[in-house]
């Protein structure tokens, strides 16, 4: 389709506005984490730093268990992503490739999972997990995170399965491959972009989770990044430099991670579908 000069102008303005909306706050946070404390809280803020210091990062790494929080978050998020993918594949295959009684009803029930206010199940879950010795374990967080990521992941599976022609599987079946061989050798490779998208979705959902992580985890050594960071905020003081350094350091690794896998997420969602 052709685009006139006016079209280009509107497009350029819209792109610029979006870039500003997403990147300007990041820029301010990132650059300010290197400013001296006085410049950070100055009544007249600066777009470009006038001072430079690493003191906030030093303080963050010296006095808090930031690297531990970070590793915990990675571990919990990666495990959650892995389990979510496995369960979503199982459920996806059942829902979108098999015929069975009650299928529609069950599928709908799964979608209804988001109707339970998470705040409601917080305390019952705590008491339940306490009974089976899951309090203060990573497994507790993985279970909760998978619960919240799974329904949406199953919904995403729907599009991915729909985009795969059944003829492929049928052809494999005619060639004499059994059901599981077909799944492993034909279906899963074809679903790869979709699997990547679900894994990333589950990873991010777990990476950002705060409420359950704050209550189900007790010891400092097991805290995830959001909870550890909220502890640094402190009760009586706000050290903006420290917080901005913490914010930057907690965003940076995900940015790096996303630089590698981000296109899979978008591709999985957009190109996984039949055009």
């Amino acid at each position: 389709m052709k685009r006139g000069p006016l079209g280009w102008l509107v497009l350029a303005l819209a792109v610029l506005a979006l870039v500003f909306l997403v990147l300007a706050p990041m820029w301010l946070v990132g650059t300010s984490s290197f400013k001296l404390p006085r410049e950070i809280i100055n009544r007249v803020p600066t777009w470009f730093p006038h001072s430079f210091t690493l003191q906030h990062y030093q303080k963050l790494l010296q006095t808090s268990a930031f690297p531990t929080y970070f590793l915990n978050s990675v571990l919990v998020a990666a495990s959650s992503a892995f389990v979510t993918v496995i369960l979503a594949l199982m459920a996806g295959y059942a829902f979108f490739r098999l015929e069975f009684r009650g299928r529609d009803m069950l599928y709908r029930l799964i979608m209804v999972a988001y109707a339970f206010p998470s705040i409601v199940i917080l305390i019952p879950i705590y008491l339940m997990f306490a009974k089976v010795g899951l309090i203060d374990t990573d497994l507790a967080l993985v279970l909760v995170n998978v619960t919240f990521a799974l329904p949406f992941s199953i919904w995403m599976m729907r599009t991915f399965f729909a985009s795969l022609p059944r003829e492929l599987e049928e052809a494999a079946a005619i060639d004499g491959a059994g059901r599981w061989k077909t799944v492993v050798h034909v279906l899963i490779p074809l679903l790869r972009p979709g699997i990547a998208a679900i894994a990333i979705f589950a990873f991010v959902a777990s990476w950002t989770e705060y409420l359950f992580a704050s209550v189900l985890i007790i010891s400092d050594a097991k805290r995830t990044l959001p909870v550890g960071l909220s502890g640094i905020i402190g009760q009586y003081q706000i050290d903006w430099g420290l917080l901005l350094a913490g914010a930057s350091l907690s965003v940076l690794p995900v940015v790096v991670f996303f630089a590698f896998v981000g296109r899979w997420f978008v591709a999985g969602l957009t190109e996984g579908a039949v055009k």
Binding site: L122, I123, Y126, L127, A130, K131, I135, D136, S214, V215, I218, S219, D220, S230, G231, Q235
Partner: peptide
């Protein structure tokens, strides 16, 4: 020591007492 946050401790301590930890 296990430092906690004032934000959650009102929920966490009674729950922990009930759960025996």
């Amino acid at each position: 020591q296990e430092p906690q946050s004032w934000g959650e401790v009102y929920a966490k301590v009674p729950a922990a007492m009930a759960a025996g930890n």
